[in-house]
């Protein structure tokens, strides 16, 4: 979806302000919100693309006024409510009002380190040859999905060059809908600065995105 999260090239946000000696978390609630989100993915059964969509799918003023971990918290609440794990009444009341969903798996302490260290590879075995070759010029499709996509608006319609082929990976757009992983070839596509931002752009600039095959069309 073309939401407020898709920020590449937007103007008016001002300078980047680094924080000296920044802590990992700012306050106890950020620690707990982060850990709850990570730990709930097992009982919740959602995937990373569903989580991303739950965070970004909100009115721009809401997305832009929340801090990062407030967005995580809101996303977590959405994911849990959608699956009947908690109700919005319970969240508002701040206490349990209905019994837990049965047969839900939790993340036990002994699984924490192995789960994080294992991660979740998104690479899958290819079932068809790659359509594009490294060095080939491609055009990014001009598409505007209503649902989750990882094709940023600032590259749509533009010409780029295939620079890397990363193999076949779980396709985020469909995986976010819970209709299967639908793996596709994934490429790094490089763009010249002036192609994206106009002829007055610094000619030494180039930008790349990682793009699944169905984002690309042959030139």
């Amino acid at each position: 979806m073309d939401g407020a999260h898709d920020m590449g090239g937007a103007k008016g946000f001002g300078p980047v302000v680094p924080e000296p000696n920044e802590p990992v978390f700012h306050g106890e609630w950020e620690r707990r919100a982060f850990a709850l989100t990570v730990a709930m993915s097992r009982p919740g059964g959602w995937n990373i693309d569903m989580s991303r969509f739950a965070r970004e799918n909100r009115p721009p003023e809401d997305y832009l006024s929340k801090s990062y971990f407030q967005i995580w918290l809101a996303g977590l609440e959405t994911l849990m409510i959608e699956r009947g794990l908690v109700t919005s009444e319970e969240i508002e009341a701040g206490k349990m009002l209905s019994p837990p969903k049965p047969d839900v798996k939790t993340l036990p302490p002994q699984d924490v380190v192995p789960t994080i260290r294992r991660g979740a590879s998104t690479e899958r075995t290819a079932t068809s040859p790659a359509l594009f070759a490294v060095g080939e010029t491609v055009r990014m499709k001009e598409i505007h999905p209503q649902t989750h996509t990882r094709l940023p608006q600032y590259v749509r319609g533009h010409l780029g060059t295939i620079e890397l082929n990363h193999g076949c990976h779980v396709f985020a757009d469909l995986n976010s809908l819970g209709v299967g992983e639908s793996p596709q070839w994934l490429y790094t596509v490089r763009f010249d600065g002036p192609e994206l931002w106009g002829k007055d752009t610094d000619p030494t600039l180039s930008i790349s995105v990682d793009a699944w095959e169905s984002y690309l069309e042959r030139v």
Partner: peptide, 12 residues
């Protein structure tokens, strides 16, 4: 509700 173990949160 038994969905999370607070000890796991501390470890994370």
């Amino acid at each position: 509700k038994g969905y999370v173990d607070p000890a796991s949160l501390d470890l994370l």
